[in-house]
């Protein structure tokens, strides 16, 4: 991937990238020229736009459809030091049949666990079609030598992970060593192909640590240029985690990236999305920003654990007409 050249054409929003129509090497200097040449992120505008999109009213049949879509997009996650095989198996069972007595309720997209739990999850999900996602590369801090990160990734892939959620080296990114970050992402992408597998690579930007919206935009482009299949907001271990304006910026980035390179990249907000109402706001934002092409579990995911319960409660409210309560869903 490194040393590969990118060619940008001249239409659409990110017009300044046009300046890089020349063949561009992904080294520090080239990346800096490219990333700092992106049009600046409009923070006030993004916040205002996100707030306005959050006021859209989605009701009745549209709401029912949105809830089911959101369930299908959930990466049901458990990333605790106290995870046990039993807990992972219980989570897999829940992901496969969120409402055991309602066959029309879809299953989630994936179960997201630590690398050592991949085999357990894979066995529990056999035959369900649900993916196993594993965090890797010294999650959540990303502070480990590259060799360790690659071994971490390769082990998860060997154990059967279909998707790898890696964290970028925020320290290197903030220090301006874009080449190092790009190289690492490309190397991990290579590790995803260990042993003839082809695991999807989600790159966690940890936007809560990137300080500015410009950095979020640059990190998004950097990850996409380096071969990410998905860009993900956060680990869920840092506050603030996913926010609507940041996700909006990332959606704009994947839209512009596809317009310029023809390659579609997915987006995954993670952390802090707890209510069905929030999830629907995100879906509205996806539709209005990136477009309906992204309204599918292949291109948009929610990294969440408690969100699923609220989605189920809202589904029941629509079905039965009475408010349900937390006593009637699993405690996980």
């Amino acid at each position: 991937m490194i040393g590969k050249t990118c060619h940008f054409t001249s239409e659409s929003g990110t017009a300044t990238v046009v300046g890089v129509t020349a063949q561009l090497a992904l080294d520090d200097a080239g990346l800096r020229r490219l990333l700092h040449g992106l049009p600046p992120a409009d923070q006030v505008g993004a916040d205002a736009r996100a707030a306005r999109l959050g006021t859209r009213s989605i009701k009745t049949t549209a709401k029912a459809e949105a809830l089911d879509l959101a369930v299908r997009m959930v990466d049901l996650t458990t990333l605790e030091g106290a995870d046990t095989p039993g807990k992972v198996r219980a989570l897999c069972a829940k992901g496969a049949h969120p409402e055991p007595n309602q066959p029309d309720c879809p299953s989630v997209a994936a179960i997201c666990v630590y690398g050592d739990m991949v085999a357990t999850a894979k066995a529990a999900l056999a035959g369900t079609g649900i993916k196993v996602a594993s965090v890797a590369t010294a999650f959540p801090s990303g502070r480990a030598p590259l060799a360790v990160k690659l071994a971490d990734t390769a082990a998860a892939v060997e154990a059967g992970a279909d998707e790898i959620d890696m964290v970028i080296d925020r320290g290197a990114f903030l220090a301006g060593r874009y080449g190092a970050v790009a190289e690492e992402i490309a190397a991990v992408k290579q590790a995803c192909r260990t042993g003839g597998h082809d695991a999807h690579l989600k790159v966690i930007l940890e936007t809560g640590e990137l300080a500015t919206y410009d950095n979020v935009k640059r990190a998004s482009w950097l990850a996409m240029l380096s071969g990410a299949d998905f860009i993900k907001t956060s680990t869920g271990k840092v506050s603030p985690a996913a926010t609507l304006p940041v996700t909006l910026l990332m959606l704009e980035s994947v839209r512009d990236f596809r317009a310029q390179t023809g390659r579609q990249v997915g987006v995954k907000p993670a952390g802090g999305i707890r209510t069905a109402k929030d999830a629907i706001k995100y879906l509205v934002t996806v539709n209005e920003t990136a477009g309906p092409d992204w309204l599918s579990p292949d291109w948009f995911r929610f990294g969440a654990s408690s969100l699923l319960n609220d989605l189920l409660l809202q589904r029941r409210k629509l079905a039965t007409g009475v408010y349900s309560g937390p006593d009637y869903v699993t405690v996980d």
Binding site: G321, V322, Y323, S324, G325, P326, D327, Y328
Partner: peptide, 9 residues
């Protein structure tokens, strides 16, 4: 009626 049917009451 909403309070009487609410399952968390």
């Amino acid at each position: 009626p909403w309070l009487a049917s609410h399952l968390d009451v």
